[in-house]
């Protein structure tokens, strides 16, 4: 693909902290290479702002190779920007043309309060995981892998669900700010394997209870989450979670809920 440089106008959400209200700020960046990643373009902007003695734009990032789930920009009306199955850090500037105006907003959900500018607090996801997104039974020492037969199809589905990086794009895209795609991926990847199977009922109940406590909305199956997920987690996981949750609610005799 041909390399080109471009000049862009950025409209970026600026907000001091969770307690203050924010507003859009316009910035101009010039000579942006089409081979830069979206975050590198923001690095250029921030260096420019530092040189000018202005405050840089705060944004989340970590691995910059699409596997950590830290980058979280809502670009031109879509979480992680226009490319399918791509995180913001893997979005490259060749997705844009010279003279474009790009609007960048933080994830919008009450369960994800803005920390500063484009950074939101996704601690709610951590607390959902803490509520049951793990295996607590003793699995013993490492044994021969073939001791526990797992059908290939189950292993594949579990792996596909485990690809969820917890970035929160599903919540950002959902009109109800529902976290069900995230939650269903986390429940599915454990429930599909024998080690996770034993606690599947309690896990589904505990994690859903925590999700409701965190103030996420409910799922109305619009499919927006699946469309924007950078890891292309499938919405059929939500049906699996619902199945798990309903049967767990009927079957469990625990009184903690």
């Amino acid at each position: 693909m041909e390399h080109y440089n471009m000049n862009l106008t950025l409209k970026v959400w600026k907000q001091k902290n969770a307690d203050t209200s924010g507003k859009f700020e316009s910035y101009k960046v010039s000579n942006i290479s089409s081979e830069m990643s979206f975050l590198e373009m923001f690095d250029v902007l921030n260096e420019q702002l530092v040189r000018e003695g202005k405050e840089p734009v705060a944004f989340d990032h970590d691995c910059r190779e699409g596997i950590c789930g830290m980058c979280s920009m809502y670009i031109n009306g879509r979480p992680h920007g226009p490319w399918q199955g791509t995180t913001t850090c893997q979005l490259h500037m060749r997705a844009f043309r010279d003279g474009d105006t790009i609007v960048v907003e933080p994830w919008r959900a009450k369960a994800f309060p803005v920390v500063k500018d484009l950074i939101v607090d996704r601690g709610a996801f951590d607390r959902i995981i803490q509520a049951g997104g793990y295996i607590s039974v003793n699995t013993g020492n490492a044994q021969d892998g073939n001791n526990i037969p797992i059908p290939k199809d189950d292993a594949d589905k579990s792996f596909a669900a485990a690809a969820c990086i917890g970035c929160g794009a599903c919540v950002a895209a959902c009109k109800n700010s529902s976290a069900l795609l995230f939650l269903s991926a986390k429940v599915s990847h454990l429930a599909l394997l024998p080690q996770g199977d034993t606690e599947r009922k309690q896990r589904a109940l505990d994690m859903v209870a925590q999700m409701d406590k965190e103030g996420f909305g409910s799922c109305t199956n619009t499919g927006a989450c699946e469309a924007v997920c950078p890891k292309e987690i499938e919405i059929t996981n939500i049906a699996r979670l619902n199945r798990e949750y309903l049967s767990a609610g009927l079957a469990t005799d625990s009184k903690s809920h």
């Binding site: 907003e105 009109k175 619009t222 499919g223």
Partner: peptide, 15 residues
């Protein structure tokens, strides 16, 4: 559940 809405809406791009 949303709080402040988006300036640019996703519209029919995902649902």
């Amino acid at each position: 559940k949303r709080g402040i809405g988006y300036a640019v809406k996703m519209g029919n791009r995902g649902s």
